[in-house]
Protein backbone atom coordinates (compact mmCIF):
# COMPACT_ATOMS: atom_id res chain seq x y z
CA UNK A 1 0.00 0.00 0.00
CA UNK A 2 1.40 3.40 -0.93
CA UNK A 3 0.72 6.17 1.60
CA UNK A 4 -0.21 9.69 0.51
CA UNK A 5 3.29 10.88 1.39
CA UNK A 6 4.91 8.23 -0.74
CA UNK A 7 2.60 8.83 -3.69
CA UNK A 8 4.66 11.50 -5.50
CA UNK A 9 7.73 9.27 -5.28
CA UNK A 10 5.82 6.26 -6.50
CA UNK A 11 4.56 8.30 -9.42
CA UNK A 12 8.06 9.56 -10.17
CA UNK A 13 9.39 6.01 -10.14
CA UNK A 14 6.64 4.86 -12.48
CA UNK A 15 7.30 7.76 -14.82
CA UNK A 16 11.04 7.12 -14.76
CA UNK A 17 10.43 3.47 -15.54
CA UNK A 18 8.16 4.27 -18.46
CA UNK A 19 10.69 6.81 -19.76
CA UNK A 20 13.38 4.16 -19.60
CA UNK A 21 11.19 1.75 -21.54
CA UNK A 22 10.45 4.35 -24.16
CA UNK A 23 14.07 5.38 -24.65
CA UNK A 24 15.30 5.78 -28.20
CA UNK A 25 17.48 2.97 -29.42
CA UNK A 26 19.23 5.00 -32.11
CA UNK A 27 19.30 8.50 -30.67
CA UNK A 28 20.60 11.30 -32.90
CA UNK A 29 24.39 11.41 -33.18
CA UNK A 30 25.68 14.78 -31.86
CA UNK A 31 26.90 16.88 -34.77
CA UNK A 32 30.38 17.28 -33.25
CA UNK A 33 30.76 13.50 -33.36
CA UNK A 34 29.93 13.17 -37.05
CA UNK A 35 32.38 11.32 -39.29
CA UNK A 36 33.64 12.90 -42.51
CA UNK A 37 30.97 10.98 -44.49
CA UNK A 38 28.21 12.18 -42.17
CA UNK A 39 29.44 15.79 -42.36
CA UNK A 40 29.40 15.56 -46.14
CA UNK A 41 25.76 14.41 -46.12
CA UNK A 42 24.80 17.33 -43.87
CA UNK A 43 26.59 19.78 -46.20
CA UNK A 44 25.09 18.27 -49.38
CA UNK A 45 21.55 18.42 -47.97
CA UNK A 46 22.06 21.99 -46.73
CA UNK A 47 23.23 22.98 -50.22
CA UNK A 48 20.58 21.21 -52.28
CA UNK A 49 17.27 20.55 -50.62
CA UNK A 50 14.21 22.62 -49.74
CA UNK A 51 14.47 21.40 -46.17
CA UNK A 52 18.21 22.14 -45.80
CA UNK A 53 18.57 19.48 -43.11
CA UNK A 54 17.89 15.79 -42.58
CA UNK A 55 14.27 15.36 -41.54
CA UNK A 56 14.08 14.44 -37.80
CA UNK A 57 12.52 10.98 -38.19
CA UNK A 58 15.30 10.04 -40.64
CA UNK A 59 18.11 10.96 -38.22
CA UNK A 60 18.63 7.37 -36.97
CA UNK A 61 19.65 6.58 -40.57
CA UNK A 62 22.73 8.78 -40.19
CA UNK A 63 24.36 5.50 -39.06
CA UNK A 64 24.36 4.82 -42.80
CA UNK A 65 25.20 8.22 -44.31
CA UNK A 66 24.58 7.49 -47.99
CA UNK A 67 21.25 5.91 -47.09
CA UNK A 68 20.29 8.97 -45.03
CA UNK A 69 21.15 11.22 -47.99
CA UNK A 70 19.12 9.26 -50.53
CA UNK A 71 16.18 8.80 -48.14
CA UNK A 72 16.13 12.56 -47.47
CA UNK A 73 16.11 13.32 -51.20
CA UNK A 74 13.29 10.79 -51.73
CA UNK A 75 11.32 12.34 -48.86
CA UNK A 76 11.78 15.86 -50.20
CA UNK A 77 10.17 14.84 -53.45
CA UNK A 78 7.28 13.12 -51.68
CA UNK A 79 6.67 16.01 -49.29
CA UNK A 80 7.18 19.00 -51.59
CA UNK A 81 6.63 17.81 -55.15
CA UNK A 82 4.21 14.89 -55.27
CA UNK A 83 1.67 17.11 -57.05
CA UNK A 84 -1.11 15.45 -55.02
CA UNK A 85 -3.88 17.59 -53.61
CA UNK A 86 -2.84 18.28 -49.99
CA UNK A 87 -6.18 16.85 -48.79
CA UNK A 88 -5.59 13.52 -50.54
CA UNK A 89 -1.94 13.54 -49.45
CA UNK A 90 -2.75 14.02 -45.78
CA UNK A 91 -5.55 11.47 -45.93
CA UNK A 92 -3.08 8.89 -47.28
CA UNK A 93 -0.56 9.71 -44.55
CA UNK A 94 -3.02 9.32 -41.69
CA UNK A 95 -4.29 6.05 -43.20
CA UNK A 96 -0.72 4.78 -43.24
CA UNK A 97 -0.17 6.02 -39.66
CA UNK A 98 -3.36 4.21 -38.61
CA UNK A 99 -2.39 1.02 -40.45
CA UNK A 100 0.98 0.98 -38.69
CA UNK A 101 -0.26 2.52 -35.43
CA UNK A 102 2.54 5.06 -35.72
CA UNK A 103 1.77 7.56 -32.96
CA UNK A 104 4.33 10.16 -34.01
CA UNK A 105 3.07 10.38 -37.59
CA UNK A 106 -0.52 10.42 -36.45
CA UNK A 107 0.16 13.17 -33.91
CA UNK A 108 1.94 15.33 -36.51
CA UNK A 109 -0.38 14.67 -39.46
CA UNK A 110 -3.74 14.64 -37.70
CA UNK A 111 -3.84 18.47 -37.50
CA UNK A 112 -2.34 18.78 -41.01
CA UNK A 113 -5.11 16.58 -42.39
CA UNK A 114 -7.79 18.76 -40.79
CA UNK A 115 -6.06 21.91 -41.98
CA UNK A 116 -5.87 20.54 -45.52
CA UNK A 117 -9.64 19.99 -45.47
CA UNK A 118 -10.15 16.36 -44.49
CA UNK A 119 -13.34 16.34 -42.42
CA UNK A 120 -13.15 15.86 -38.65
CA UNK A 121 -15.72 13.04 -38.81
CA UNK A 122 -13.60 11.18 -41.37
CA UNK A 123 -10.39 11.61 -39.37
CA UNK A 124 -12.18 10.35 -36.24
CA UNK A 125 -13.54 7.35 -38.15
CA UNK A 126 -10.07 6.43 -39.41
CA UNK A 127 -8.64 6.71 -35.89
CA UNK A 128 -11.36 4.40 -34.58
CA UNK A 129 -10.96 1.87 -37.40
CA UNK A 130 -14.36 2.66 -38.89
CA UNK A 131 -14.96 3.36 -42.57
CA UNK A 132 -15.27 7.15 -43.03
CA UNK A 133 -18.66 8.14 -44.48
CA UNK A 134 -18.24 11.68 -45.72
CA UNK A 135 -15.16 11.48 -47.95
CA UNK A 136 -15.08 13.58 -51.13
CA UNK A 137 -14.98 11.54 -54.37
CA UNK A 138 -11.19 11.90 -54.84
CA UNK A 139 -10.61 11.07 -51.17
CA UNK A 140 -12.84 7.99 -51.43
CA UNK A 141 -11.02 6.80 -54.54
CA UNK A 142 -7.64 7.13 -52.79
CA UNK A 143 -9.02 5.58 -49.60
CA UNK A 144 -10.39 2.49 -51.35
CA UNK A 145 -7.20 2.09 -53.37
CA UNK A 146 -4.99 2.17 -50.27
CA UNK A 147 -7.18 -0.06 -48.11
CA UNK A 148 -7.51 -2.62 -50.89
CA UNK A 149 -3.76 -2.59 -51.48
CA UNK A 150 -3.17 -3.28 -47.78
CA UNK A 151 -5.79 -5.99 -47.54
CA UNK A 152 -5.24 -7.85 -50.80
CA UNK A 153 -1.70 -6.76 -51.77
CA UNK A 154 -3.20 -5.63 -55.10
CA UNK A 155 -6.19 -3.69 -56.40
CA UNK A 156 -9.24 -4.67 -58.43
CA UNK A 157 -9.93 -3.23 -61.89
CA UNK A 158 -12.84 -1.13 -60.64
CA UNK A 159 -10.84 0.44 -57.82
CA UNK A 160 -7.85 1.01 -60.07
CA UNK A 161 -9.98 2.64 -62.78
CA UNK A 162 -11.62 4.95 -60.24
CA UNK A 163 -8.35 6.12 -58.67
CA UNK A 164 -6.78 6.73 -62.11
CA UNK A 165 -9.88 8.70 -63.08
CA UNK A 166 -9.55 10.93 -60.00
CA UNK A 167 -5.75 11.22 -59.64
CA UNK A 168 -4.30 10.19 -62.99
CA UNK A 169 -1.57 7.58 -63.48
CA UNK A 170 0.99 9.93 -62.03
CA UNK A 171 -1.17 10.47 -58.94
CA UNK A 172 -1.41 6.72 -58.39
CA UNK A 173 2.36 6.35 -58.66
CA UNK A 174 2.82 9.28 -56.25
CA UNK A 175 0.44 7.68 -53.72
CA UNK A 176 2.49 4.48 -53.83
CA UNK A 177 5.72 6.49 -53.45
CA UNK A 178 4.20 8.27 -50.46
CA UNK A 179 3.13 4.99 -48.85
CA UNK A 180 6.59 3.50 -49.40
CA UNK A 181 8.33 6.54 -47.94
CA UNK A 182 6.10 6.83 -44.88
CA UNK A 183 6.30 3.06 -44.33
CA UNK A 184 10.08 3.37 -44.21
CA UNK A 185 9.89 6.27 -41.75
CA UNK A 186 7.26 4.50 -39.64
CA UNK A 187 9.34 1.30 -39.52
CA UNK A 188 12.41 3.33 -38.62
CA UNK A 189 10.58 5.21 -35.86
CA UNK A 190 8.93 2.07 -34.50
CA UNK A 191 12.29 0.28 -34.40
CA UNK A 192 13.98 3.34 -32.88
CA UNK A 193 11.07 4.02 -30.51
CA UNK A 194 11.22 7.66 -31.53
CA UNK A 195 9.54 9.65 -28.72
CA UNK A 196 6.61 11.94 -29.40
CA UNK A 197 7.28 15.66 -29.49
CA UNK A 198 7.40 17.13 -25.96
CA UNK A 199 3.99 17.85 -24.45
CA UNK A 200 2.07 15.50 -26.72
CA UNK A 201 0.41 12.20 -25.87
CA UNK A 202 -0.35 9.17 -28.05
CA UNK A 203 -3.75 9.41 -29.72
CA UNK A 204 -4.22 6.05 -31.44
CA UNK A 205 -5.61 3.03 -29.67
CA UNK A 206 -4.26 -0.38 -30.58
CA UNK A 207 -6.62 -2.11 -32.99
CA UNK A 208 -6.33 -5.67 -34.23
CA UNK A 209 -7.54 -4.62 -37.66
CA UNK A 210 -6.76 -0.93 -38.07
CA UNK A 211 -8.23 -0.43 -41.54
CA UNK A 212 -11.93 -1.16 -42.05
Amino acid sequence: MVSIKQLPWALMATLAASCAIAQQRLSPIPADQYSADQKKVVADIAASGPRKEIFGPLLPMMRSPELAYSAERFGEHVYYNSGLDKRVYELAVILLARQMTQQFEWRVHYPSALKAGVKQADVDAIAAGRRPRTLEPDEAAAYDFIVELYKRNEVSDATYARVVDKLGERGVVEIVGLLGYYTTIADMMNVNRTPLNPGTAPMLKTLAKPLP
Binding site: P60, L67, V155, V172, G177, L179, G180, T184, M188
Partner: peptide
Amino acid sequence: EQRLTDLVATMGFYTSIAMVTNV
Protein backbone atom coordinates in the same frame (compact mmCIF):
# COMPACT_ATOMS: atom_id res chain seq x y z
CA GLU B 1 23.61 -0.08 -36.14
CA GLN B 2 24.50 0.73 -39.76
CA ARG B 3 23.41 -2.70 -40.98
CA LEU B 4 20.30 -2.36 -38.84
CA THR B 5 19.23 0.87 -40.54
CA ASP B 6 20.12 -0.61 -43.94
CA LEU B 7 17.88 -3.59 -43.21
CA VAL B 8 14.93 -1.40 -42.20
CA ALA B 9 15.39 0.71 -45.34
CA THR B 10 15.62 -2.43 -47.50
CA MET B 11 12.25 -3.53 -46.19
CA GLY B 12 10.80 -0.06 -46.84
CA PHE B 13 12.23 0.11 -50.35
CA TYR B 14 10.92 -3.31 -51.34
CA THR B 15 7.55 -2.36 -49.90
CA SER B 16 7.43 0.54 -52.38
CA ILE B 17 8.53 -1.74 -55.22
CA ALA B 18 6.07 -4.51 -54.28
CA MET B 19 3.19 -2.05 -54.09
CA VAL B 20 3.91 -0.46 -57.45
CA THR B 21 4.52 -3.75 -59.27
CA ASN B 22 1.39 -5.34 -57.79
CA VAL B 23 -0.69 -2.31 -58.75
